[in-house]
């Protein structure tokens, strides 16, 4: 828990954009000093919260969950790199009403904790707009949403109010308290625009760190293309040779490899492999010996796609699956 990781910063100071004309006056006041000021904050929240909440999702990877937020009607989701954990990962997006949707991680920025996820099922999804012009300032009133501690349908996502208490190039900090499960969830301004994604916390309650929108905008194209950007602390690139298939084979005299054993809960078992199946080709290459298969897998990384030509019960079949992780 006490591990310190490099706090990465760009050399340039952020360019502060001019305040938007529709900026709530309360943000330019040192502190609210009247009932009217408090009502303005409360009213702004009441206005934008339903829509913000609809677009906030839980991201479930089986071994854990985080949060995310939908930013396009087609179902593009922004989250944290340490939630997506990698590129091309299968995951489940859970909507506020409990509806589960198949999704896949796209690209990520491992140095600053940005990631994109795509909902695979066709539909028109509730979404929020982003503060692309970077108009928020230190002291602005903000609110966070997220599935704190995991998805809970009776509770819904949890809203917290605070102010922007610290800004740096690749991190903004608020006193909206975050906790595990909130990772990847959205931080909004009082107009309901997305200004950041929850990333990490310090020990003090006011140290809640978010990745600002400008980091996402700066790497938008790379993430859309599914690239793994940087070698940062928030996600680890899959390592060559760490792939896991989970079956044992023996060579057949007539060519191809006969499956002699399928590991329990292995990627092979999940892909439907049974003892007696025959693997003829991997990624188009005919296989004659066990060593050939082992060599090929050694050159691959966890998550890499495998196209297999098989004989199942004597019938030719093709199968696509992903290599697991050892």
């Amino acid at each position: 828990m006490t591990r310190r990781f490099p706090f990465l910063l760009l050399a340039l100071a952020p360019v502060m954009a001019m305040a938007a004309p529709d900026r709530p006056y309360i943000n330019d006041k040192k502190a609210p000093d009247s009932r009217k000021d408090l009502d303005v904050i409360q009213k702004a929240l009441a206005t934008v919260l339903p829509k913000a909440r609809e677009a906030t999702v839980c991201i479930d990877l089986g071994e854990g969950s985080g949060s995310g937020v939908i930013v396009s009607p087609e179902g593009l989701v922004l989250t944290a790199a340490h939630v997506a954990t990698g590129v091309g990962k299968e995951l489940t997006v859970i909507m506020e009403d409990g509806k589960k949707l198949k999704a896949e991680s796209m690209g990520l920025v491992s140095t600053t904790d940005c990631a994109m996820v795509r909902i695979l099922e066709k539909g028109t999804y509730p979404f929020v707009s982003m503060d692309r012009e970077d108009t928020t300032k230190l002291g602005d009133w903000v609110f966070s949403l997220g599935h704190s501690g995991g998805f809970d349908k009776d509770r819904g996502s949890v809203v917290r109010l605070g102010r922007l208490v610290r800004t740096a190039d690749s991190t903004i900090q608020s006193d909206c308290t975050l906790i595990g499960g909130d990772s990847g969830g959205p931080l909004f301004d009082l107009e309901g625009r997305l200004i950041g994604i929850h990333s990490r916390v310090g020990e003090v309650l006011s140290q809640n760190m978010h990745v600002p929108m400008r980091e996402f905008i700066a790497h938008w194209e790379e993430m859309t293309r599914g690239e793994f950007v940087g070698e940062g602390p928030f996600a680890k690139k899959p390592e060559k040779g760490k792939g896991f298939f989970g079956l044992a084979t023996e060579a057949r005299p007539e060519g191809g490899l006969k499956v002699t054993k399928v590991g329990r809960e292995s990627p092979a078992e999940k892909a439907g492999f049974k003892e007696g199946d025959v693997i003829l080709k991997l990624n188009g290459k005919p296989l004659a010996t066990r060593e050939e298969l082992q060599e090929m897998i050694k050159e691959m990384s966890p998550g890499d796609k495998m196209a297999l030509d098989l004989l199942k019960g004597g019938k030719a079949e093709t199968l696509e699956m992903k290599l697991g992780e050892r």
């Binding site: 006490t2 910063l9 939630v83 990490r200 916390v201």
Partner: peptide
Amino acid sequence: AKFFPILLVLGLSQSVQGVQ
């Protein structure tokens, strides 16, 4: 429920340029 823990960071650097 299991979740991705928010990472806990200690010893934030204070005197970095561009920080408010």
